[in-house]
């Protein structure tokens, strides 16, 4: 008889179990550990010890925190945010008011550590207050662009068909227009203010997010777990927001950090051109007013310029760090 015969093997196993020595039985019991309600899947036991309950998020955080560049970026951004929050306390006066002699170089007068500009305004106060507008515009514009872009992209990617065609056309219309020109036109039509600048930047930045989200949704829509969700009778909203979106988020999060940086740059560019809010100081407007004096008082453009460079750099470093942390191909440690 062939030994591959199942019945034969089973009877052998049964007899073995019946005649097993006590020491073997004791060893097996010890190995099994705590008894469960059901022993049909003893493979689960081995996993208990092998798999430490580290969630996706915790693992990503670990990878992110072990990346010195990302830590530096985060540190710098936290510093800028603290500065923005404390600026009204440190310099309660309007940073646009004249406080001293014009053209004081940095270090000349300890009351104005970073000097004064052509109208005698405190450069340090300007930079500190300027961080408020830069961050506000950067974060708000990104939030708005992200929300709208994700909505459009997920709708297009999830439903497909004519809805997709229509939304893709809409995205393409925005993407074919030169975005900065569109931004200038939008701000010029509306009165320049922090709000209109924010809205205008959001208007030109959402198509990128929409494209990305749509691509992610189209890929994830075909995954088996989405099929499973549909087979269980879940509604569209639940599938979009609970099943697909969390899986589509990593690249969107990475993009958003770069979007904040881009928005800060755009705001600066607008202010530089004199299209910013005239009633508040921003890094861009400081460069704008200082640009004619670049040869005589270069610090007036260099200092707010450095503020922009470091903030944008910090955001990009965070973006890279997030990319490494959220991309499972890199975060899988052996």
């Amino acid at each position: 008889m062939s030994t591959t015969d199942v019945g034969n093997f089973r009877s052998l196993v049964a007899e073995r179990e019946a005649t097993a020595e006590p020491e073997a039985a004791a060893a097996t019991a010890a190995a099994n550990g705590p008894a469960w309600s059901n022993m049909k899947a003893p493979d689960a036991r081995s996993q208990q010890s092998a798999a430490v309950a580290v969630t996706n998020g915790r693992r990503a955080l670990k990878v992110f925190l072990s990346n010195p560049n990302a830590l530096f970026g985060t540190g710098f951004l936290v510093f800028v945010i603290l500065v923005a929050l404390t600026a009204p306390i440190l310099y309660p006066d309007d940073p646009l008011s004249m406080v001293g002699r014009p053209f004081l170089w940095p270090g000349q007068n300890s009351a104005y550590p970073l000097g004064t500009d052509s109208l005698g305004r405190d450069v340090l106060a300007g930079i500190l207050h300027g961080s408020r507008i830069s961050l506000f515009v950067g974060l708000m514009a990104t939030a708005l662009g992200l929300t709208f872009g994700v909505l459009v992209g997920s709708t297009a990617g999830y439903f497909g068909g004519w809805i997709d065609d229509l939304l893709v056309r809409l995205i393409e219309i925005f993407q074919t227009l030169p975005s900065f020109v569109l931004l200038v036109v939008l701000v010029a039509i509306a009165q320049p203010s922090a709000t209109t600048v924010t809205l205008a930047i959001a208007v030109i930045s959402w198509p990128t997010v929409a494209r990305l989200t749509r691509a992610e949704f189209r890929a994830i829509r075909e995954k088996d777990f989405v099929m499973a969700a549909r087979s269980l009778g879940y509604g569209h909203a639940r599938i979009i927001f609970r099943e697909i979106l969390p899986n589509a988020l990593p690249p969107i999060i990475v993009t958003s950090s770069v979007m904040v940086a881009t928005a800060i740059l755009m705001e600066s560019a607008l202010s530089f051109m004199g299209l910013g809010d005239p009633n508040v100081v921003s890094w861009g407007s400081m460069i704008g007013t200082g640009r004619e004096l670049v040869r005589t008082a270069w610090y007036l453009t260099a200092l707010p310029g450095l503020a922009i460079v470091f903030t944008v750099l910090a955001l990009n470093l965070i973006g890279d760090g997030l990319n490494d942390a959220l991309n499972p191909r890199f975060s899988q440690d052996r």
Binding site: A24, A27, D43, S46, A50
Partner: peptide, 27 residues
């Protein structure tokens, strides 16, 4: 006839790697 468990149980096993799933295992 099942072989209980999975190959993961061999991780960190000092003796025979198949012991945790073996129906003839002894101390």
């Amino acid at each position: 006839t099942e072989i209980p468990g999975s190959i993961v149980s061999a991780v960190g096993e000092a003796g025979c790697p198949f012991r945790p799933r073996c129906n003839q295992a002894r101390a």
